[in-house]
């Protein structure tokens, strides 16, 4: 199947939700000598190939995917990036 659009979905913790993993990564970077590293927050990147030409439709579908499965919107937010 030739895919028409490629999406990248970034799922990250909402502002204000504590991110102990991000904190641990920050500490580790500091310990490696990267003194300029301040706050670190981590998340997920999900790549999705879509058999869809219409960008608006693709976006609407992706938003629904995020709400239904990809993100837990109690604690997470998402951003969608689309490329042809």
């Amino acid at each position: 199947m030739e895919c028409e659009l490629k999406a990248r979905v970034f799922v990250t913790l909402k502002n204000g939700v504590l991110d102990p993993q991000g904190k641990a990564i920050g500490h580790a970077l500091n310990n490696l000598g990267f003194a300029s590293v301040g706050a670190v927050r981590q998340g997920k990147l999900i790549e999705i190939e879509l058999d869809e030409r219409d960008e608006a439709k693709a976006r609407a579908g992706l938003r629904e995917m995020c709400e239904k499965l990809l993100a837990n919107t109690v604690i997470e937010k998402y951003e969608i990036e689309l490329k042809a």
């Binding site: 504590l18 102990p20 993993q21 837990n72 109690v74």
Partner: peptide, 17 residues
């Protein structure tokens, strides 16, 4: 149950990882 929406809130990674 929290993922299903039958209970509120969420369960995250333990604070001490």
């Amino acid at each position: 149950l929290t993922e299903s929406g039958l209970l509120p809130g969420a369960l995250m990674r333990n604070a001490a990882l």
